[in-house]
Structure formats: structure tokens, C-alpha cells
Amino acid sequence: MFKEFMIGLGAMAAAGSAMAQSAPTADALCAKGEIVTVRFNELTPAGSFDGFNAAAVANQKYYRDKGITRNVQLVGRAMVRDTATGTWSFSDKRVSTAHVNPPSGRADTNDSAWKAFVAQFDANSTVTAQQMFCYTPAIDETATIVAEIKKFEQVWADTAAAGNAAGLGALLDDSYISYGKAKPETKADLLASTADPKKRPASVKISDVTVKVDGGYAFAQGVWTETAKDGKVTVLSFFDVWKQNRDGAWKAMVSQVGPVSP
């Protein structure tokens, strides 16, 4: 949902032909997309961003207490660039909320919990603009990501066989940890082992690699066959969790390895 929403922010979801369509309800009009209500607010003289955020939290709790779970609310602050210095800072006044999949119909405005969070919003901000959007699903990049992760898994095997600790390190997040051996291995542990000529294998082969993608995460599993310099063969199953960073780069976060029975 979040990935679709963020991609949708870059373009109008309703194309020209769709703009002319009509329907009895917003849900019906946006049946193939996601409804997002975007509000722009200005903080009151006595208001604060913390107070504004607390009102949004109370708003979300109101829906959760009513058993409504599909909606999600995002709270933001406007970012302002100083043209003289090129630096960025948060606006002192401008804030916003984006309500993804807002519940259909109005809630009971006489409900004390409803009145409470509305009062919090009113005490901290005033609405300057509001618009409801229909965001289309994000472009499906699953096939591209699967191919990329499989390529990284092969690079992992190649760098391990070559003793290329720097190359392997580029694939791993700094928080990386591996489970399945006598004790968990950190990124530093694995890179030290990779760089040690005494521990370097004669060859490494991976096979049966499959990848599942879920938003900004990818889950890869496969078989790791390692042949030592003395000819001993070790076969392990592996399961790697990859996460996409803000800049789009994929890094391995966690691994689980185990022996493969003959």
C-alpha cells in the first residue's frame, strides 16, 4: 500500500478519460485504485506539530476502536529549501495528513471520542486545502526485482569463492546478521572469514534460487554448494532477507542457513 501511494504522489492517478467518469460514490469511482484524502493545514499560534500529530494518532485510534483496520494515516511537515544556502528545514507552520483508504460515510460526530480528536486538530491547526485522490496501483516491477536479487545472490557466491570481502560487503547492510551456525555471524564476522585465505573455498555454486517480493522487501532462498580445497563438499540451504533502501539500493539484512540432508 505505501509503495503504491508514494509512487502515486508523483503523478495524477486519474487519466484524462477517467476524469470524465462519474459514479454514485467515491469507492465506486475508485474501484481499481486506492482513495487518499490529502489535507493541508497551518498550525495555529498556540498549536504545535506534536499536538497535530497527537490528534492524528487519536483519530486513527478512533477507527481502530470501531474495528476499522484498512485505513492508514500519514502525518507530514512541509520541507522548505533555503535558496541562498541550499539547505533544507521544516516549515514552522505548514503540516499535512494523508488518509489512505478512509472509511466510507461519516462517523458519528456526536461520539465523545470523535469530538475529542477533532478538538485536538482544531486547537493545533486549521485546514487550508483538502482534496481526495484516486491513486492507481504502482507499476509492477516484481520481475525486475527478482532478476536483480538473483544476480546479487550469484555475486555473493562469486565474491565468497574469490575471497573478495569488499565486494561481499557492498551487498550487506551494516546491521546484517546470519543465523544457523554455532553462533550468529555479524557482517564483520562474515567479511573477516571471507578475507581469510585459509577459509577460502575452491568453488561455490548456488542453485534452485527463488525470490518472493513484498513491497520494499525481497526473500530469497536456494541451495549453496561449497567445495573446499581438500575436496570436501558442504551443501547448505539459505534464506536471505533483502531490504530496499531509500536510494533504491538493495541490501541483505538477515540470513538463515542450514544443512541439506542427502
Rank of each mutant, 00 (worst) to 15 (best):
D158L: 00
S255F: 07
T44H: 00
L29M: 09
A13C: 09
T85K: 03
F121P: 03
G51H: 01
A157N: 02
W156V: 04
A228L: 15
A249S: 15
D247K: 08
Q120L: 13
S125Y: 05
A31L: 11
T37I: 11
G215M: 05
I35M: 06
I145V: 15
K115S: 12
Q244W: 07
S17Q: 12
P45K: 01
P137A: 14
A165W: 00
A54F: 07
A15H: 13
N59Y: 15
G10R: 07
D189C: 00
G16P: 12
A170M: 10
V100F: 03
V127D: 07
K243S: 10
I7S: 15
F238V: 01
Q256E: 09
K66F: 06
G67R: 04
T25K: 04
L171S: 12
S261D: 15
S203N: 13
K93A: 10
K187R: 05
A195Y: 01
Y62P: 03
N164E: 06
E42M: 12
L191R: 02
P184M: 01
T186F: 02
K32P: 07
F117C: 09
G33F: 04
V80A: 10
Y63H: 14
S91N: 11
S48E: 01
K115E: 13
N53K: 15
I35Q: 06
A218E: 00
V118R: 12
V95L: 00
W114P: 06
A123E: 05
K232I: 09
N59W: 10
A170Y: 12
S261F: 14
A129Q: 14
P45R: 03
A58S: 07
G248F: 03
M12K: 09
N124G: 04
S261Y: 12
A23E: 00
Y176L: 08
G33L: 02
L74Q: 08
A160D: 10
K183Y: 11
G76D: 06
V260D: 10
T37F: 06
F52D: 01
A160E: 09
T234Y: 08
V75M: 05
R39I: 12
W88N: 11
A166I: 11
G258I: 08
L172S: 05
G16H: 07
D189L: 00
A123H: 03
A55N: 02
S22F: 15
A58Y: 07
D65E: 08
F90C: 09
V100A: 03
R94C: 03
D158H: 05
S17M: 14
V80G: 13
S193W: 10
S22V: 11
A165Q: 05
A54I: 02
M12D: 13
I206T: 05
F2K: 14
F5D: 00
G33A: 02
A56F: 03
D174Y: 14
L236C: 05
A162R: 07
T225L: 08
D27W: 08
A129Y: 08
V75H: 09
V80S: 09
G47H: 01
A78Y: 05
F121E: 03
Y217G: 14
F152Y: 14
F238C: 06
R94H: 11
V211C: 02
S104E: 09
K199D: 06
E4T: 15
K115T: 13
S178K: 05
Q130E: 15
M132C: 14
D82Y: 03
D122H: 10
A116C: 12
K150W: 04
A23T: 04
I149R: 02
V204H: 04
I177M: 10
S237V: 10
A98P: 04
A23D: 01
V257L: 13
A218V: 02
A56S: 08
T97R: 04
